[in-house]
Design a protein around this nucleic acid. Structure first.
Lengths: 107, 107
DNA sequence: ACAATATTTCTATATTTATGGAAATATAGT
DNA sequence: ACTATATTTCCATAAATATAGAAATATTGT
């Protein structure tokens, strides 16, 4: 990952509506949620939502798939992890003061 | 952490120069680097650098301390970790597909 | 007080980004 | 083909952000 790609990913979630959308999808799991459900849950108008979903998709932080009349959006966990690893790469010069506690919870 | 705080933190690193600065400081460890050294390493003009350092400071992602004529900047690892945890909170609905590999490297 | 070095503020300009109503497009059932 | 539902595009407007030269402000040593 290079700086530009990382900035693209970060910019895509450095905005209130988009961060809400992304976290909702992160929590929703691989099946994702339809655009309509996302908009309803977060109270975002159609056109605004569409704009933000496009931003997140372009950045590569979410995937979309068409399913009948609905478009389902889901988090791209690989992209998320690559970003987190980029941010913490070679962190704290071996001082062990940075250690993030980011673990996948077992069911 | 709430959405707004997270957006502030993310916005502060969703910019090429600032992401470079932040990663440099993350890798520099707790002692940090002086503004001059940062600017020299990254090739950023004084005024531009100062603007970006202020952004990162306001966001709370870096600390600064005066030491004689120099101002040393260092990463705020706590803020970084809080942010990463916020992003991955309750992730992937227990499907175990998200697990980021963000571990502190032992020396 | 002066000179040298380090950093910040001021300023103007340029660029990017967010918003949501209305219209257009897509999909599926009848 | 028609209707209903879902989503996206178009558009104009509003707001926020990045850039760097020049000047101003620290800080330290002589």
């Amino acid at each position: 990952m290079d700086t530009k790609s990382a900035v693209t990913l970060l910019s895509s979630i450095a905005q209130e509506a988009r961060l809400d959308i992304f976290r909702l999808l992160v929590q929703a799991g691989t099946s994702g949620l339809s655009a309509g459900v996302i908009g309803e849950r977060l109270g975002i108008p159609n056109s605004t939502l569409s704009f933000h979903l496009k931003e997140l998709s372009y950045a590569g932080l979410i995937h979309s798939r068409q399913e009948s009349r609905f478009v389902y959006y889901s988090a791209n966990y690989d992209a998320m992890n690559t970003l987190l690893e980029y941010l913490t790469q070679n962190c704290c010069a071996g001082e062990q003061v940075c250690c993030p506690d980011v673990t996948c919870e077992t069911v």
